[in-house]
Design a protein around this nucleic acid. Structure first.
Lengths: 93, 93
DNA sequence: TAGCTTATTAGCGCAATAGCTAAATAAATT
DNA sequence: AATTTATTTAGCTATTGCGCTAATAAGCTA
């Protein structure tokens, strides 16, 4: 999936945006994340996979559990991307 | 559809993002927009409706045709919205 | 009014996505 | 090795979303 498309698609879902916001505070385990949502663990796990594919978060195995961390860089790039849109002129992607 | 959710959903589609980018140069008729895409006019028209619902563009009847204009304010707000995510701390929406 | 132009809405098919439960994988523990 | 804990993958159903064609609406002009 091509770069920014995956990011936009990932952020189109409210639950996934909530996960992103949740991870601002710092890294969390998959289970700790899932606990905060009404959906089943497996459902959240799939959401995490989508965010991972978009590179919005990164996963790291930590013994038994898996630690998810927000990828602030990608958010920053997204902001710049949209910011470019607000400028008239050339066909800057 | 609640505010920012509509915006994120609208931008999740590549064609709709192209339309947004196209309108940076200035207002355009529905037909002139549609001509630039391989999809059928009706398909583009529906995309325009989605963007309109998200308030990313505004429509104005101009005699026979309808003029679409980019709503730069909403893009600006979106940037600020995402920017807030990059800050740790409180649960700022 | 009829007819042309411009644009949207309706209805259908198909592919993609979100949700669930159950099964599978992985690491730690006994 | 078998069990427990943590998480993902698989298989299913239901909903949503995109694109098409055909039909409808709104404005203009003869």
């Amino acid at each position: 999936m091509s770069g920014s498309n995956a990011v936009f698609r990932a952020l189109a879902d409210p639950t996934r945006r909530e996960i992103v916001k949740l991870l601002r505070a710092g890294p969390m385990n998959s289970g700790d994340i899932a606990e905060r949502f009404p959906s089943a663990w497996a459902t959240i796990s799939r959401h995490l996979a989508v965010l991972r594919e978009a590179d919005l978060i990164s996963a790291e195995r930590n013994g038994n559990s898996i630690r998810y961390e927000l990828n602030a860089t990608v958010l920053q790039e997204l902001i710049e991307h949209i910011f470019d849109w607000t400028k008239k002129g050339a066909d800057n992607a």
